[in-house]
């Protein structure tokens, strides 16, 4: 599977989740290289993938996007609810990516999601860049909220 194929599937999977489940329009931008996310990130959610493809799917954003999502759904915006929302979003994006990819190649299983709340952290990819290519795609939701879908993968 090449990067172009994965990129196309990430865009389709992300668009569907945000447009059908969250009623938000999203627009993708050009992919970034490793370490090129310069925005402050408040919430990062990760889910591991294993099977014919191994790696991780991550979704990163500032708190404003998660608050915009939860404010339309619940009356309170506790940190637990923000974490719950972001965990479900990575779960749906990764699950839908699996659905898109599985129609053409062998599939993979998903771990439970993990959310990192807070911005004083650094994400380091310890896999070699040649064996674990990484695709970081920026998106803008509702013309206002930037978020990133980050996929690190290795074909078996």
């Amino acid at each position: 599977m090449d990067a172009e194929f994965i990129t196309e599937k990430i865009i389709a999977a992300t668009n569907e989740v945000f447009e059908t489940m969250l009623f938000m329009a999203v627009e993708p931008s050009e992919p970034l290289g490793d370490g090129q996310i310069k925005d402050r990130i408040d919430f990062s959610a990760y889910i591991g993938i294993s099977g014919k493809i191994n790696g991780i799917v991550g979704v990163h954003c500032r708190v404003a996007l998660v608050e915009a999502i939860t404010s339309t759904l619940t009356e309170s915006e506790s940190e637990d609810e923000l974490i719950d929302a972001w965990a479900e979003i990575v779960n749906m994006v990764a699950g839908n990516l699996k659905t898109h990819i599985s129609s053409q190649v062998d599939t993979f299983e998903l771990s439970v999601p993990t959310v990192i709340a807070g911005h004083e952290f650094r994400i380091v990819n310890r896999g070699s860049k040649s064996s674990f290519p990484r695709i970081i795609l920026p998106f803008v939701a509702d013309d206002e909220y930037v978020f990133y879908v980050d996929v690190l993968y290795c074909n078996q």
Partner: peptide, 12 residues
Amino acid sequence: DSITIRMVVERI
């Protein structure tokens, strides 16, 4: 088990 999903499903 996710309140987010329950609310999303209810909205849909």
